Simulated scan of single mutants.
Amino acid sequence: MSDKIPSITELLSTLVSCPSVNPGERLHWESPYGEARLAQVLQDLLRPWADSIEIDEVVPGRPNLRALFRGRADGPKRALEAHLDTVDIDGMSIEPFEPELKAGRLYGRGSADTKGPMTAMLLALIRAKAKGIKLNGDWTFIATCDEELGARGARFLIEQGFCCDGIIVAEPTELELIDAHKGVERYRVEITGKAAHSAYPELGLNAISALADFIGRLEAMSFPSTSRPDDDTLGPITMSVGVISGGDQVNRVPQTAHAEIDFRIPPGAPETAIGELLAQAAHSTRQSRPGIEIRWEQTQHYPALHPQPDSAFSETLWQLAKEHLNARKFSRVRYATNAGFYSAAGIPSIVFGPGSISEAHTAAESIEIDAIEQAASFLEKLITVPAH
């Protein structure tokens, strides 16, 4: 790309038209899966503007990108982060990678989550550089892989020793500043029973029936809420069974069954809470169904984001947001983001961006162009006003 400043529509259309669907556990993939193509697009876009660009391969074919924009040498070192990947396109009612502008909104996969918020970050940096404005410190733009299904990009960044004085994580927050959110623990549960002819079910142990029993016992439990009174807005632990499989043919009592379960955990909840709930449900299921085996393993974990009200970064953001976004308070949400990983590593972290989470992952995903302009203007002020 050239050193011409793109419009919001031009830049977002470029990002949306570059497929970057998370491949999940696929061992081999081609378009629309994988983030490498989008990382290359960003590298070409930022080459005229950034002081340095690095691409780190997290796993084969799935990179992170880091672009450094130097500012005042005596200023803080901060970062803007957005994830490269999107969810899959199954069931979409629009063309996912043919962006369409209609009634002030741009439609396409990833437009809200999170290429629209990414566009705001990129334009804030590019516009400031084009105007010749000295940034108030060093700012690093980071694009991570795999946020949707495991966050290997964010984990890699922390494992490699990345640190800064504050980071904004791009998500569609409706221009609200998010200082706390739930964490996620995901588990794969395996039930083993005993196969038998379906004409003689009493000779077998039905793994699917046992799995249904196990799930029912879990759902009937009273999930603990947070131990922090200031986090009650996030509610208690919740669970959702997202995947179930089992059996191999209709005339055979199934020997195995599996479920994938998603738990959302508020800040301050006991670290052992989910393991204890699973153990209780397993114990009572085994008692009622002797001979059934139940095993589980954690497949994914996203830390909760804890509020950090005393950080200089939060204070700077808050003062700007009151003035330019009419903000009245920090907000808290039930979904998880990469911010939990950065906060756990000691980096003051805030989630922010245009668009609505209600548009994310939908069949006709879209974002309002005017909201991206508001976010870009706010972020440009953040990176150029004198730092505290």
Rank of each mutant, 00 (worst) to 15 (best):
P224D: 07
S314K: 09
D74L: 01
K134G: 11
P386F: 06
Y335W: 15
E95F: 08
G275C: 01
S20A: 11
P254C: 05
V87W: 03
T384D: 10
F214Q: 01
S2C: 04
R70S: 15
A199I: 04
L125V: 09
A376K: 00
G116F: 07
V253K: 02
T140I: 01
A128N: 05
R228E: 14
V351R: 11
H306I: 11
G104K: 05
G246L: 05
T119H: 01
V250M: 13
S356E: 06
T337K: 02
F352P: 03
K129M: 03
C164N: 00
P19D: 07
G24I: 00
I357R: 07
Q249C: 13
L379F: 00
A282I: 02
A39I: 03
L68Y: 07
K322G: 05
A196K: 05
P23L: 05
E219S: 08
I350V: 15
A273M: 06
E95A: 13
V333N: 09
I5Q: 13
H197G: 09
L11R: 01
R127S: 12
G166C: 06
H388W: 09
P354L: 00
T226M: 12
C164A: 00
P290E: 10
I357Q: 07
E323G: 00
M121D: 10
T140C: 00
G183E: 01
S17W: 07
P19K: 05
R217K: 15
S284P: 00
D213Y: 10
T256S: 10
K322H: 06
L157K: 05
I178Q: 02
S366C: 14
K77A: 12
A112N: 03
G137H: 05
F352S: 08
R186F: 08
L135S: 03
M92R: 04
